[in-house]
Every structure is written in C-alpha cells, then in structure tokens.
Amino acid sequence: MRTFDYHAVGSAAEALDLLAQYGEDAHLMAGGTSLMLMMEQGLIQPGHVVGLRSANELRGIGASSGGIEIRALTTHREVERSSHVRDYCPTLVEAFERIATIRIRNQATIGGNLVHADPAQDPPPILLALDAEVVIQSKIGERTVPLDGFFRDYFETVVEEGELLASVRLPAIVAGTKSTYVKFLPRTEDDYATLSVGAALRLGADGSCEHVRVALGSAAPTPIRARKVEAALQGQRLTGPMIDEAAELVRDEVDPLDDVRGSAKYKREMARVWTGRALRSLLDGGGK
C-alpha cells in the first residue's frame, strides 16, 4: 500500500476544509474496511486520507419527522443494536444483523457502506424499500437526495468532489406496512449474496395494494428499484399467482454480472424467484 498523510478531523467542517485543500488527492475514511482493501490493491491511491472517526457530530441515531435519522458514521453494529431502529422497523435490524460478520459490523459504517456503492452489499436494498434519503454536505450547504438515484454505477455515486455523506433519513412508516429482506446465499452465511431483495407492502382494507416497493442487490451495476414489478402490483387486489406474474417482469429490470456467485442468466432467474418469494411472504402476513 502506498503511504499517505492521515488527517484526523473532529468535525464535518474540518473534513470539508481538507477536501477543498487537497482536491482529488484526498479521500475520506470512515470505518476503513473497504477503503483499506482498495488501497491495498492499488485501486485508490490518495496522498491524503481524511479520517472521520472522531467527528462525533456524524455519529448517532435519532428521530426525524416521524421516521429516523442514522448519521453516516454509525456502525452497522450500532444500527443492529439500536432500540430506536428496532422500534422504527425490525426488518432493518434483521438486515443489519446479517451483514458479513460481527467484526466487520463493529468497524464498517452506514455512510461508508453507501458511498462505497458496491452493488452486492446488504443495506441498500432494504433502505431503498423503506424510501431512504441521504443528506450530502458541502462547504456551501447541504442537499437531500433520494437513495433511489444516489447510485450511478459500480462504485460510483452522486457525491461530488468536496462533498460528504452526512446522514441517512428514513421517513415515517404508514401503519400496516410490512417489509422484508431476503438474500440468497448458496455458499456461506457471511458471503456476499448471489442476489438479495428488500420489499415493502401495504394492503388496503379491501385487500388492494396501496403501497409496494421492491429493490434488489447484486442484480445490476447499482442496487435497483424494480419499478415495473411495483407498477404491475400497485392498486391491484393481490393474489399469489398475480405476484408470480409480476415477478417475471424483474428479468427485464436486472442487469447482473457473471461471477463466482452465479452466471448472469442464473441470477436473472433468481431475481424472479426471490422477488416472488419476498412479495408472497408479505402477502401471506410475513415480514415486520
């Protein structure tokens, strides 16, 4: 690994000053789990690393207009163990409990995870299913961006030079909404998923679909929403066969890669299968 100057900062403002000073030669580091490996492999070679660990204002979980706000430096383990998060949505806790291993969850952060933008990671699909937004801060202020639209490509997001991701906001969940996160792990429990699906569903009193979200991981260059599947179900009185039919549409929405976890063709089929399973479980009263 090429060496670098490490700047430990105590606030977001200090970090933004250093980003302005060093420009492209600077890189932010939160938990460091992904960045260390990318630097080790020479994929990123910053001359200056801005360490956010002591920027306590970027850490923590709190209420936010009926929903919750998870600040960027909050570790996966803190999310998983937070009573705030459990009260807000137990599915979110279950998704975070299954990320990699406890060691990684103790070190890796939610903000670092999102800006890393690896399409195989666990948080994005469930956060997309819950309509998360992210707050991006710069020297001129802050902007809020829906997570759906945040990811640009493999390892690329809309965060520009001179900006940092400050927090993740999740809106209030309308009563009666159920969500689930499922992942297909043919090898080991701590592996990246071959495919994963986050889904949310709310049925009206007459059994019609009032609200539906379907999001997938490991299925395309970025985590994605399956909008065609959602559109086919919205407003309909749902049945199992109708869900299976809608799940067929996901084949046209995914764009997976061939890799050791399966061929693109196989993952496309698994996208259909797991989308159907996730939605059927919600229709059958599963999820939380």
């Binding site: 490490y6 430990a8 580091m29 460091g32 789990t33 260390m36 490996l37 360490g51 660990r53 383990r77 406890i102 060691r103 990684i104 103790n106 070190q107």
Partner: peptide
C-alpha cells in the same frame, strides 16, 4: 472491547 479484524484496521485508529 469490540472484536475487529486487525488486518482491516489502520493502526492509527
């Protein structure tokens, strides 16, 4: 007290 991987953690941390 928290378990971590020493291969992923910068010593400065």
């Amino acid at each position: 007290g928290d378990m971590v991987s020493a291969c992923l953690m910068p010593a400065i941390f």
